[in-house]
Write a protein that binds this DNA or RNA. Structure first.
Lengths: 151, 151
DNA sequence: GTTTATGCAAAACATTTGCATAGTC
DNA sequence: GACTATGCAAATGTTTTGCATAAAC
């Protein structure tokens, strides 16, 4: 229904917990970053995020923290249609996204049978499947209903 | 069976034809580039390609030509598992790749029912599907059979 | 001759790294 | 106090741009 549910469990807290779990120290810059990420309602880039942060927060810290968060699976990377890679809040485990090209929102793809199709297709090609990356583009319900025109 | 069939119709010629079709001029640098691309037997990057070219061929020309070729659908971009985007010779039209993470070869995915699955899944989410991007990773038959160990 | 393409150098970005300083545990 | 994280500035690497010159049509 909504872009990226930012309320309820608080994405910010999930981020901080993930850092703690992994033995990273709790620092002011990381708390600031976690809060900022928690407020993103669509995919974002490292530089884009940085522009929303106090300039006192070093560039390197942003990049280093984002890398950690991707490894911790709190963030994931999404591939836009033009080939740009952005970051996005994520739920653990393998999943895919329905990316709205209009508003930038993203829904997780659940109950998807793609895996099965890939397994059989791969076998047919003598290919030993080990992973895949899928992004789905289109318009979310809201955007489809409202702007029947718009870009 | 093979990585990217470079013989038969000659990828180089396909590239040159595509340029001609689109009204681009036939120039020496473009011919050099086409030949070099035709010799690639796996995905490559702009900079990687440039290193195989005479230094007299300007950097800008490489980038400009690659962009044209992607638009002409002679090349396509492939997303590696680590998020790197590479170029690769392509066959027109929408298709996916089985990318061997070991030798870097690529097979086109044909007879794939993914589209159908996506359509129904999207509908279930109220999502108006417009496109998708899929990459499949694993080992090609040759690599799977030979190095049962190797990286 | 007109128009397009090229090479170059510089600019614009994005990301990473070394290191001294500051903050956590 | 020991170890980790930070901010900064510089280094790296990639891609884009402006522009005068050269080549294609």
């Amino acid at each position: 229904m909504m872009a990226l549910k930012k309320r309820s469990v608080s994405a910010t807290d999930r981020i901080l917990e993930a850092l703690e779990e992994r033995g990273y120290r709790s620092t002011a810059p990381r708390r600031t970053l976690a809060a900022a990420i928690g407020q993103q309602d669509r995919h974002f880039t490292a530089e884009g995020l940085r522009k929303q942060l106090p300039p006192s927060l070093g560039r390197a810290t942003v990049y280093r923290t984002l890398k950690i968060l991707v490894e911790a699976e709190v963030l994931c990377r999404v591939l836009l249609e033009d080939g740009d890679l952005h970051y996005q809040l994520s739920h653990r485990g393998h999943h895919h996204h329905l990316l709205c090209v209009h508003c930038g929102s993203s829904q997780d793809l659940t109950g998807c049978d793609i895996e099965d199709v890939l397994v059989s297709t791969s076998e047919r090609h003598g290919f030993e499947l080990s992973g895949h990356w899928l992004e789905v583009y289109g318009r979310c319900r809201e955007c489809a209903e409202s702007g029947k025109a718009a870009a």
